Amino acid sequence: MNASFGEAPAVSRSVSVRSAVSEILPLLRRAADEALLGFTDADLREQAEAIRSSARYVLRVRAT
């Protein structure tokens, strides 16, 4: 199953890239853990980078 999400709102340009990602990562980790999703740190970092840059991101989920 593939789910495509729309573009995220842009993060203020005054916030550094590293800072923005470090703020987003804990939120993604908490949401993934609460939903019992097995995202790796690399998965979450990739998602955070996409959110930070307002890039489109395709979430791929395999149900077994």
Rank of each mutant, 00 (worst) to 15 (best):
N2M: 09
N2P: 08
N2T: 09
S4Q: 07
S4T: 05
S4G: 00
F5R: 00
F5N: 04
E7L: 05
A8H: 06
P9R: 08
P9H: 03
P9E: 08
A10S: 07
A10P: 02
V11W: 01
V11E: 03
V11C: 04
S12Y: 02
R13F: 09
R13D: 12
R13I: 09
V15P: 05
R18V: 12
A20P: 04
A20H: 02
V21K: 05
V21F: 04
S22C: 12
S22V: 08
E23M: 13
I24P: 06
L25Q: 09
L25A: 02
P26Q: 10
L27C: 14
L27E: 15
L28T: 03
L28H: 06
L28M: 03
R29V: 12
R30Q: 13
A32V: 07
A32R: 03
D33F: 08
E34S: 11
E34H: 07
L36S: 15
G38Y: 06
F39P: 04
T40I: 10
T40Y: 11
A42L: 15
A42D: 15
D43T: 09
D43Q: 10
D43C: 08
L44T: 01
E46P: 04
A48R: 02
E49S: 00
E49P: 00
E49C: 00
A50H: 02
I51S: 00
I51T: 01
I51L: 11
I51P: 06
R52M: 10
R52C: 10
R52Y: 10
S53D: 15
S53N: 14
S54K: 01
R56E: 00
Y57L: 03
V58N: 13
L59Q: 11
R60G: 13
V61F: 03
V61P: 06
R62N: 12
R62C: 10
T64A: 13
T64M: 09
T64E: 13
